[in-house]
């Protein structure tokens, strides 16, 4: 049993699963990171993901192309973000609670739409696996990284893109300034709330794609409340990653690889109660962060609404 467990094939399998499982977390957490860097905590990721997942699913269900599904998820996600920004930025609502409201709204509305428009979940054909020609024949690396659907690859490409946007563009500079010291940014002519609208909508659009990566990428179906708390994990991973794209990547990979590991342990019959196995990724995420120590301070203006002229 244990020699089986340590075989190369198994290890490749674990890594392959980990890379794939990290996809929705990457989209959602990178998006959430932008919002938080500008000072807005969006706890409603879960609800946004579900709405995005349903939008993408339904678009494909009625005969649309999967790419059209992604577009639908982006639009619906951004609209949910607009709602969140309206409440949290303009109306300056408590961000923790408005996010819980947005989650309830998204969970409920997506289930309702499924029931009214589709009924029982019906399978669709979304993105299928696309092995990257050439790259997939590299031993070990190929089967781990290059045997996924297209949305998985895009998720990883978004890591360098996020790095670039955050640290090398004016928009990124504005985001960081607004999240660190909105008064100073404002005095330099940055429109604080406009930037926050931008980041929250961007983040929600990405949460929408995160949902799509499940409903038309990994699973090819929609089911009521199918994210099952994934959105909250994504928010947690932003903290794990210290508000940095690479940190988020490491967090998402760690969490999903351990999750893949515990699945393999169960499948190969390692004698451990399944409940305790399922617990592992959650436990390890905390332990790693606690042991590794984190000295990164959160954006100074996080969760603090901004009002001019005080």
């Amino acid at each position: 049993m244990f020699h089986e467990f340590l075989s190369v094939a198994t290890l490749i399998g674990i890594a392959n699963s980990g890379v794939r499982l990290a996809t929705p977390y990457l989209y959602a957490a990178l998006g959430e990171m932008f919002g938080q860097r500008s000072g807005v905590l969006n706890l409603g990721v879960e609800g946004v993901m579900l709405m995005g997942a349903f939008a993408a699913y339904y678009t494909v269900y009625i005969g649309g192309d999967p790419w059209l599904g992604v577009l639908a998820a982006i639009i619906v996600g951004a609209l949910m973000g607009l709602l969140m920004a309206l409440i949290s930025v303009t109306m300056q609502a408590q961000q923790g609670i408005s996010g819980i409201g947005l989650t309830l709204f998204g969970v409920g509305l997506s289930s309702l739409l499924l029931k009214v428009l589709v009924g029982s979940p019906i399978g669709i054909s979304g993105f299928s696996t696309w092995k990257v020609p050439g790259l997939n024949s590299i031993p070990v690396i190929g089967p781990i990284f290059f045997e996924h659907n297209i949305l998985v690859y895009i998720a990883y490409l978004l890591v360098p893109v996020s790095l670039y946007v955050l640290y090398r563009t004016t928009f990124g500079l504005k985001i960081r300034a607004v999240g660190q010291n909105p008064e100073a940014a404002d005095s330099l002519g940055v429109r604080v709330n406009a930037v926050r609208y931008g980041t929250v909508m961007l983040g929600s659009a990405m949460a929408g794609i995160a949902g799509a990566s499940l409903s038309i990428g990994l699973l090819n179906i929609f089911q009521e409340n199918m994210t099952n708390g994934l959105g909250f994990i994504a928010v947690a991973l932003v903290y794990f990653g210290g508000w940095r794209p690479l940190g988020v990547l490491i967090g998402a990979l760690l969490f999903s690889t351990v999750n893949a590991l515990q699945l393999w342990m169960q499948v190969l019959g390692v004698p451990i109660p399944s409940d305790l196995a399922v617990m592992m990724p959650y436990l390890l995420t905390i332990v790693v962060l606690a042991v590794g120590g984190q000295r990164i301070r959160q954006p100074a203006a996080l969760t603090k609404p901004y009002e001019r002229g005080e």
Partner: peptide, 25 residues
């Protein structure tokens, strides 16, 4: 009515009540 509709209404109540506080503030 489906229970999901009730979840929607709960979500709306939470969002709107918390948003309304800005005027009080």
């Amino acid at each position: 009515v489906p229970s999901a509709l009730i979840t929607v209404i709960n979500g709306l109540v939470v969002m709107f009540v918390v948003a309304s506080e800005v005027y009080v503030r």
